[in-house]
Design a protein around this nucleic acid. Structure first.
Length: 492
RNA sequence: GGCGCGGUACCCAAGUGGUAAGGGAGAGGUCUGCAAAACCUUUAUGCGUCGGUUCGAUCCCGACCCGCGCCUCCA
């Protein structure tokens, strides 16, 4: 199966296939590690994860490179404010970021790469550009890219810069850029400030240079796909294209994948709006990692997603439904054989699920296909018409669904536990939902013991006592469900 | 101002030129010591407004209204 994906560069749906016929080489812009990641960041990384998981489901091998930007103005400023060198400042947030990705079940890219470890590659890129007269050094030691050296500039973001550049250029200060639109490749820094001594002078990389250098380092001068948030389209990706293609004369990335920003309560997320959430904020409020993941991937990547707490509740319920169905399938005692209707339901779900993903990663439709099968499966189960082969077929659909969505398999305890641990360590315990904290006061074994106590009371038909225990556990955020196959419980 | 996206039931959200997926919530029911959970059923004569094209439009065209994003650090 082949994925058809919107390509910002071509402006249409293009098939995503490896140019070398073997391995899909993709580069995704990673985080600048100056703070904890927020849900907007994670929507993008989650959608990239969805992309790579879908490719793999379709049988495509992936070599996915993600950079960690560990030097830039914000980092330098924040580290200075914290009174630590950046080499001490960034690892903390890099680790937090990677932990957050793991919490959200985001697969690790094949290659993670840091900007500060590729200074030589960046320097040689500048030298190549200089040799082609596409880069120049100003008297203050900065290096700029000469936009006029790249006539195709604007082809990604569809900007026509002709009228915007410098038609009215009069006297350009000798210390300034030749054109206001020329962008910095390398920023000169005085001794004492973060910088590297290199052949092109002392300084540090401009923002765009690292991505070009590292993408080429690990994927070659020309590769299959480049991903990032919509804001990166201009100027970041446009500049990457300009500097890369000017240096190599080759197409940089063939396919460009951009994820739209999310809104929170209908507005752009910002600290001043009071609608700014990190992953950790949400975990501490008691939302499960799986629910956050599902909420962030259920709206297709090209649409704005309006993130709300209602949406998280919806995702929580939806996951419960899926998990309950999966558990029900697994534990059901079924006769051998298969039924035509159930096999057909599974086959249809599988086909629709794959088709939906193949059509520009339509997660909403893919989800719907599986939920339809869930309903059909439940009906068959209730009617005693589901047979063991049907079960296997439906479980396979759920497996494929989870290979991409990754929300049915329950790994929610660890992220929540880790978030509480982190809150404890960083003096933020007051941000933890009381119920969540309460639920942590009992170990699983202790909960089981209380439940056994209640079971005993129930056997003696001492329902007053039994309800007492149930209420007590409920106040600790532990929900009890009596079922035919015994008592199930879960932490809220 | 330039570029772009969207307005579908109480909420979220797919979708197609031929009569509206899915999830959540609500209601009813099954089950249950009770409850919860689970499961089933049910919920848009209508898809921002007004015109047009068409045998037929939510889907195509035009105008308008509203919301949003990018154009500057930003995923």
């Amino acid at each position: 199966m082949t994925l058809r994906l919107f390509n910002t560069l071509s402006g249409q749906l293009d098939e995503v296939v490896p140019a070398d016929g073997a391995e899909l080489r993709m580069y995704a812009c990673g985080p600048t590690v100056y703070d904890y990641g927020h849900i907007g960041n994670f929507r993008t990384f989650l959608q990239v994860d969805l992309l790579r998981r879908t490719l793999r489901l379709f049988g495509t091998r992936v070599r996915h490179v993600m950079n960690i930007t560990d030097v830039d103005d914000k980092i330098i400023r924040n580290a200075a404010a914290a009174g630590v060198p950046i080499s001490e400042y960034t690892p903390r947030f890099e680790q937090a970021f990677l932990d957050d990705l793991a919490s959200l079940a985001v697969e690790r890219p094949e290659i993670l790469t840091r900007a500060t470890e590729h200074i030589p590659q960046m320097v040689s890129l500048v030298e190549r550009l200089a040799a082609r007269n596409a880069a120049y050094r100003t008297d203050d030691g900065n290096w700029y890219f000469r936009l006029s050296a790249f006539p195709e500039y604007g082809k990604l973001s569809k900007k026509d810069l002709d009228g915007m550049t410098d038609g009215a250029r009069v006297d350009v200060d000798e210390y300034e850029r030749d054109s206001a639109r020329d962008f910095a490749l390398w920023k000169a820094t005085p001794p004492g400030e973060t910088g590297w001594e290199t052949a092109i002078g002392r300084g540090r990389p401009g923002w765009h240079l690292e991505c070009s250098a590292m993408a080429m380092e690990f994927l070659g001068e020309s590769f299959d796909l480049h991903a990032g948030g919509e804001d990166l389209m201009f100027p970041h990706h446009e500049n990457e294209i300009a500097q890369s293609e000017s240096a190599t004369g080759k197409t940089f990335a063939r396919h460009w994948f951009h994820v739209r920003f999310l809104l929170v309560n209908g507005r752009k997320m910002s600290k001043s709006e009071g609608n700014f959430f990190t992953l950790r904020d949400l975990l501490l409020r008691g939302y499960k990692a799986s629910a956050i993941r599902l909420a962030l991937i259920s709206v297709p990547y090209r649409h704005q997603l309006n993130f709300t707490f209602d949406g998280l509740d919806e995702a929580t319920s939806a996951i419960d439904r899926l998990r309950t169905f999966a558990a029900r399938l697994r534990s059901a005692d079924l006769p051998a054989g298969s039924s035509l209707a159930c096999m057909a339901a599974a086959a249809r779900a599988e086909e629709e699920f794959r088709d939906a993903l193949a059509g520009d990663l339509n997660t909403a439709e893919a989800r719907a296909a599986v939920f339809e099968m869930v309903r059909e499966g439940n009906i068959a189960l209730d009617a005693g018409q589901l047979r063991s082969n049907d079960r296997d077929a439906m479980l396979r659909v759920l497996d494929d669904f989870d290979a991409v969505f990754a929300v049915i398999a329950d790994h929610d305890a660890e992220p929540t536990r880790a978030a509480i641990e982190w809150a404890r360590a960083s003096g933020r315990l007051d941000e933890v939902a009381p119920e969540l904290l309460a639920a942590q006061t009992l170990t699983d074994a202790e909960v089981e013991a209380r439940i056994e106590e209640r079971n005993q009371a129930r056997r003696q038909r001492n329902f007053r006592r039994s309800d007492e225990i149930r209420d007590e556990l409920a106040s600790l955020g532990i929900l009890i469900e009596d079922s035919r196959d015994g008592v199930r419980w879960k932490r809220k």
